[in-house]
């Protein structure tokens, strides 16, 4: 079964690393569940896209990155921020539209950034993150800082023209960029079968960009592929495409009942391929105490509860905030 399969790709993983991956993925899941709950209470408004089910992708890739690397993604972005080490309190407070949010309540779920953690958003226009990520890579090359840009996008975004334009430039100029396509099988409600010709990991072939399809539900498979891709990029050989086959358990956004897929399909993924349970099974097979796992669960719950409380207690932005940050103030010449 699933756990058996992951055994092989996780052959050399030690217990501490297993625990760390388990902890990070669990934080994402519990955070997202809490966000869903706060949305249900009307505390989070607008669009809210949850990452539940896809946790192994960002966790596995981030675990292989260097501190100087940069990250950009689409609007399904809470997990990427957590993986980059951004504070759950600041993220949740942005979701509730409060002053202590990462964007002072002016960005919302889809628009958060952290210069300190090299996280460049949070973009609501499908495919824009591919081009912006290519620009981050351009800046790494220009500054010769040894960084790699990791640009996440969905399977829907991979069809955008600007992504193809960027593959061309990134390959032409050997830009240090890892394009991660998070293929969760549905571009909103449209199945891949009805929207994608060919295979997404092969879309770079014409440009000479290597690509690989990976089991994105298996965090060790993700790690292994990321390591290989990042080595390739860091050695100066240019871009790489990883197509992560993954699955979101929830709808596209909170208001999507996801009627375009069967219950069986969802339950099969949940019951047989869940990224967190796969790691949990391994930990149990390794003889980790149930009490230790419970302790991690409790700790994560505490972090998420604290974030939720913080996000509700933080005040709304002052009305004067309406007018700030439109332009950077400049001295009169």
């Amino acid at each position: 079964m699933a756990a058996k399969k992951t055994k092989s790709s996780a052959a050399k993983v030690n217990k501490d690393e297993l625990l760390s991956l388990y902890r990070e993925m669990l934080l994402i899941r519990r955070f997202e569940e809490k966000a869903g709950q706060l949305y249900g209470m009307g505390l989070i408004g607008g669009f809210c896209h949850l990452y539940i089910g896809q946790e192994a992708v960002v966790t596995g890739i981030q675990s292989q990155q260097e501190p100087q690397d940069t990250v950009v993604t689409s609007y399904r972005d809470h997990a990427h921020m957590l993986a980059c080490g951004m504070d759950p309190k600041g993220i949740m407070a942005e979701l509730t539209g409060r002053i202590d949010g990462y964007s002072r309540g002016k960005g919302g779920s889809m628009h958060m950034f952290s210069r300190e953690k090299n996280f460049f958003g949070g973009h609501g226009i499908v495919g824009a993150n591919g081009a912006i990520g290519t620009g981050l890579a351009f800046s790494h090359k220009y500054k010769k800082d040894g960084g790699v840009a990791v640009a996440y996008m969905g399977d829907g975004a991979a069809n955008q023209g600007q992504v193809a334009e960027c593959y061309n430039m990134a390959a032409l100029w050997k830009l240090p960029i890892l394009y991660v396509i998070e293929n969760n099988k549905y571009a909103m409600g449209t199945s891949n079968k009805r929207s994608i010709a060919g295979e997404l990991h092969k879309r770079g072939e014409g440009y000479g960009i290597p690509g690989e399809q990976v089991d994105g539900m298996d965090v060790f498979a993700v790690q292994k592929a990321a390591r290989k891709a990042l080595d390739h990029i860091r050695s100066g050989k240019g871009p790489y495409i990883l197509e992560m086959m993954t699955y979101r358990y929830r709808g596209h956004s909170m208001s999507d009942p996801a009627k375009y897929r069967t219950k069986d399909e969802l339950n099969t993924m949940k019951n047989e391929h869940d990224p967190i349970n796969q790691v949990k099974d391994m930990l149990q097979q390794d003889g980790v105490d149930e009490a230790d796992l419970k302790a991690i669960d409790k700790e994560i719950k505490g972090i998420v509860a604290e974030a939720a409380t913080f996000a509700q207690e933080s005040p709304e932005p002052d009305e004067a905030e309406l007018w700030t940050d439109v332009l950077i103030e400049t001295d009169a010449a």
């Binding site: 460049f120 081009a131 351009f138 061309n168 430039m169």
Partner: peptide, 21 residues
């Protein structure tokens, strides 16, 4: 010199500017 690809190279330049160029 860029390819004839305004959408892509403008997005790229915007990303580069966000990272300080």
């Amino acid at each position: 010199d860029t390819p004839i690809t305004e959408h892509g190279f403008t997005g790229m330049a915007v990303g580069a500017a966000m990272n300080g160029l």
